[in-house]
Nucleic acid binder design. Structure first.
Lengths: 218, 218
DNA sequence: CGGCGTCTCACCCGCCCGGGGGGACCCACG
DNA sequence: CGTGGGTCCCCCCGGGCGGGTGAGACGCCG
């Protein structure tokens, strides 16, 4: 066993910090919490002062974004590895996180043993992503290979229909949709009819309901 | 000092449970954590078996809703007080929570001292709401006193308008809405016009988008 | 080459819907 | 007691929308 991983916790909830500390306490020989911060400024002071191995950062700290902090930390002369913690199991966030320079993206459902193992993996140079997310990312990658990448493809919508639907959800009229997509409104009506048939609805309001409930758009 | 408040923790994140335990540990004489559950079923077993004073429940447990659990617990022969914990500082959730039978709605930013005090207040029969939320809710106290709890009340919708909107989201036509509510469709149109004005939209599709995005209906 | 699906556009029809009036009743509030 | 808001209903009107049908252009695949 090597020297323990030195970790700084960054989260605006005292509760979460206490939870992390408590969870990591039994593994003190492998992971050592050397500091805690509840906001971005003290987090920066702490990291520059202590030069920890890893900063364990919440992605959503009230108003401030953990992603921004991640970028800031990654730009330091002696950057720590940054592992982001989140409750959002959304693929998109993972991409942003890794692009922001994070070495890991874990969900808050992890337990102590798992967390310690992941932190050690990060120290070994690996990039760790929560397993459930990793699975989904793999699945969506597979979909990409099959060519299904626009929202609604799983319902048999064509790309164009998906575009029309997104504007419909945005509240645009047929005329406005036509202008936006540089089409005649008759064309838009054609797409809408196909859309209604595939979504099994009879009007635009119901189509919006189906689309939003399905999670195709936000 | 009376006997300590007996609390059961319900949260799908082991970390949060650990954090709560750690935060409450220094106050063992006032609050005692007698059990922890990571899912709804074990939570039910625990509560029925231990009959705790308070169940401290996360509103958002992965897929399951803490609100549903709250309703279930409130329907038990010997119901515990239920205090919901959340990261969402949205008035609407508070309404739903209280309607679901909760005795409290606290944000996860609370510290140990605060939490202990709140739990004791709950045991005293009070209904506790996070102070920042309480302030905002006080603004609409008049509505609360009149018992206006329907979805959309926070946007100034009347109860009738809310009913119409819900059927609109369900994809019904004006005629169908009128039949369902036993009204003339001219009346429905009246309500819809008021609705469009309040939601700042011009047609039903946009109204559906606003309603669903706001979380008024699912 | 000849289907097949997608995307594009057109014409016609019927009517629901949005927008503008107005007016009735009831009840709470001042 | 007046006033204001909520609920309910009515009229008219024009346009947007849903529904049907048809067709030309393009790319794909067997």
């Amino acid at each position: 066993m090597e020297t323990p991983v030195r970790v700084v916790l960054v989260d605006d909830h005292p509760m979460v910090r206490a939870g992390l500390s408590a969870m990591l306490a039994p593994f003190a020989r492998r992971v050592r919490v050397v500091g805690q911060a509840g906001d971005v400024t003290t987090a920066l002071e702490l990291v520059t002062g202590l030069s920890p191995d890893v900063a364990l950062v919440d992605v959503r700290m009230g108003t401030a974004s953990g992603l921004d902090l991640c970028r800031t930390l990654a730009a330091l002369p002696v950057p720590p590895r940054v592992v982001l913690l989140s409750v959002y199991d959304d693929e998109q966030y993972v991409y942003e996180a890794l692009r922001a320079g994070a070495s890991g993206y874990l969900l808050k459902r992890v337990d102590g043993e798992e967390l310690v193992r992941r932190l050690e993996e990060v120290m070994g140079g690996e990039t760790v992503v929560d397993v459930t997310l990793a699975g989904r990312i793999a699945a969506s990658a597979a979909r990409l290979h099959r060519g299904e990448f626009w929202p609604g493809a799983h319902l048999g919508l064509t790309q164009r229909e998906s575009e029309v639907l997104s504007l419909l959800v945005a509240g645009l009229s047929n005329r406005a949709i036509a202008d936006r997509l540089v089409l005649g409104q008759e064309t838009v009506k054609s797409h809408l009819r196909a859309l209604y048939r595939k979504l099994d609805v009879t009007d635009r309001a119901a189509a919006v309901t189906v689309a939003l409930r399905d999670g195709m758009f936000r």
